[in-house]
Design a protein around this nucleic acid. Sequence first.
DNA 1: CAGGATCCTACGGGATACTG
DNA 2: CAGTATCCCGTAGGATCCTG
Lengths: 127, 127
Amino acid sequence: MEHTPANCRAREMISRVADKWSMYVIHVLAEAGTVRFSELRRRVDGVSQRMLTVTLRGLERDGLVRRTMHPEVPPRVEYSLTPLGATLREIVGELITWSGAHLAEVDAARARYDARAKQPQWATSDM
Amino acid sequence: MEHTPANCRAREMISRVADKWSMYVIHVLAEAGTVRFSELRRRVDGVSQRMLTVTLRGLERDGLVRRTMHPEVPPRVEYSLTPLGATLREIVGELITWSGAHLAEVDAARARYDARAKQPQWATSDM
DNA sequence: CAGGATCCTACGGGATACTG
DNA sequence: CAGTATCCCGTAGGATCCTG
């Protein structure tokens, strides 16, 4: 993995996906297929209406998500992954899987760290 | 992929890693092995000294990064991935690879989106 | 129902200066 | 060298209200 121009721009792409909601939205779309806005809002637990819109716009702009407007009343808008977006499925899925698998370890590490940080005196070998 | 408690907390883990620098730092440590602070700062292009410290502390707390202090003068501090952190290597690596592979597509999608957004009138079939 | 427009706040994150 | 401490600003992002 060298310092090629493409690699430089990798940070750009990471930034694109590394916000609070993008990965989660991709993940939900990956498992749900085609979903309406309100349904998506329900599934992406805790997202505000505004942030869901903003996130979807970003993903749509990057060609990861397709937005389909049905000219009815009341309006129905459906979202799904594009083929490009689908190529992210696996990676995001792995990240989710990883989280589940290593959650306990991370929690333990945190507890250890916090304990040590709280009483730095005890960390000295003598006492 | 169901709505298990572990899966709920997946978002927590994603949030942990989905900030501006964590993935990038993990990636650099993955390819560089054991690195001193200043060297890391040079390699993680664009990071401020403060944010590198903050990011490293977070990763250390979560047990993903090991910090080794050598009691010398001038001080030497080295960072490396823990075994747990190393399990993220592949996932982050895939994301980087993905970025490189699909950069052009994303750029094209953006250009298309922006063009359409700028002149919404032209989007109508007649004109 | 889908989401644009506003308002507002908290926090991410940069620059700079200081310390062991 | 490897930080910590401050100051400060921009923006991510939540709450609310409004419209087609």
